[in-house]
Design a protein around this nucleic acid. Structure first.
Lengths: 245, 245
DNA sequence: AAGCTTTGTGTCAATTTAACACAAAGAATT
DNA sequence: AATTCTTTGTGTTAAATTGACACAAAGCTT
């Protein structure tokens, strides 16, 4: 009996909460990483909202009435890259009450990895502005709290790239082992021994030797490989696969 | 010039967004883990909201007007445990439009670790209900999407406990090496070799030998240790400390 | 043909991990 | 008081992994 009354009271409390309590604008911001000739880059747009006019910002949108934050992130990515099925990972929530000059906006940040080459094929403007690839190392003073978001996203990328083969979505479909090594060296900001790196990667058994070589290079051409996503899925299902670099 | 007009247009667009567009209730849900005699437990309350009456749920509250989600999580933890400075880690956002029966509520999940012994000293009711410790293994059919939240939180806990010494906040201040080993075996759901475990832990140099032993045990009493948080902080600042178990 | 640049490859030492058995401490029992 | 019981505490060895390191081969350029 007691339970029943207490139940009712509680439902009412909750109902009134939902009706009367504070509601929030929610946005989704995307850190879009790309990789090109040993540089990690991020797709940014000009911010024209005071007091951040002249600074760059991440690409974001407000969450719509009936979409999940993930759906919103995919929508944003599709709008600005025309690419689908991109790798997408949640970074964190940013909810400081004063983080946005126009009022309270709670934002969810995601990061995504794309091939700059593929991107170049279908460039799209965002809010009538052309997004730009900026080298990660040169990015500073982003608008809002986007510098912190970027830092967090990069940390997440560094962690995940060590554990999962997500890097391949930033590389060309056919790549050389040296390109792959350069990629890891750039993203992780470390140096790797060429022979040991090759040994490790080949030992994973997930690279397909395409029996092709580079051409138009003025030195010994390197062999081309592609990543065996199918085999990776299978191994993943069977047991624990660790992709430690 | 063009830039200027385009800027203005954009600010207006954004302003109207914030004023008119959909706003959302945001809640924060806490997965509160505790550990007791080789069992991992979670603090749950009865849910009395249809259609989930009779089921258990995580402890959560709506986000208030001027607090961050982290602050909200701390408020919730303080309310239901009277404990402060608990370990707290973000899990994920849950934003399916139909996840809540009373309307759209986007939730941020956090998990936290507490010592059940400390908790027992200051038990607090939540919404006039007494939360209960339930063994993780026995938890099923939680209300809302809380089962998924719990799964995600446990995954995060398993990952973090391998990398950082967060487990010590769930153990008594003085513990034996066997207790510590049992803790890791329970949380990670694996078996560890006693000798190798001891060697590894002692090699970290972060356990303080208290020169005390258990008493009132009907066998050889084990030595007691405590964790050297100070030294850990220092080592963390100096270089890369990995706490791999 | 010689030279240049970059690729491709194997071994060995050092370190780390995994497996494993028996003596010692104290309480309980006889 | 001696024996038994349970659990703690400890060291060695083999196997696997990692890190360091140098030279020949391929193709383009001159």
């Amino acid at each position: 009996m007691k339970m029943t009354t207490s139940n009712t009271a509680n439902i009412n409390t909750r109902l009134s909460h939902l009706q009367e309590e504070t509601k929030f604008s929610i946005s989704v911001d995307c850190v879009i990483f790309g990789y090109d000739t040993s540089k990690l880059k991020v797709l940014l747009i000009d911010c024209n909202m005071p007091p951040y006019v002249g600074q760059k910002s991440l690409i974001g949108e407000l969450l719509e009435a009936r979409e999940t934050t993930t759906q919103a992130a995919k929508r944003i990515l599709k709008n600005c890259t025309s690419l689908k099925d991109l790798y997408l990972e949640e970074v964190s929530v940013y909810s400081h009450p004063d983080r946005h000059p126009l009022g309270r906006v709670v934002t969810l940040a995601y990061y995504s990895l794309i091939s700059i080459t593929e991107y170049e094929k279908h460039i799209e403007d965002v809010e009538n502005k052309r997004p730009e690839w900026i080298e990660l190392e040169q990015i500073k003073d982003l608008a809002f709290d986007h510098q912190k978001i970027l830092r967090d996203a990069y940390n997440r990328l560094q962690r995940t790239v060590r554990e999962k083969p997500i890097g391949f979505s930033m590389l060309p479909k056919k790549f050389t082992l040296i390109q792959l090594q350069n990629f890891y060296e750039t993203v992780l900001n470390i140096e790797l021994d060429r022979r040991n790196f090759r040994r490790k990667l080949m030992a994973l058994g997930l690279l397909i030797d395409l029996k092709e070589v580079q051409n138009n290079v003025s030195h010994r051409p390197a062999k081309l490989y592609s990543f065996d996503f199918e085999k990776y899925k299978q191994k993943q299902n069977i047991g624990t696969l660790n992709f430690e670099i």
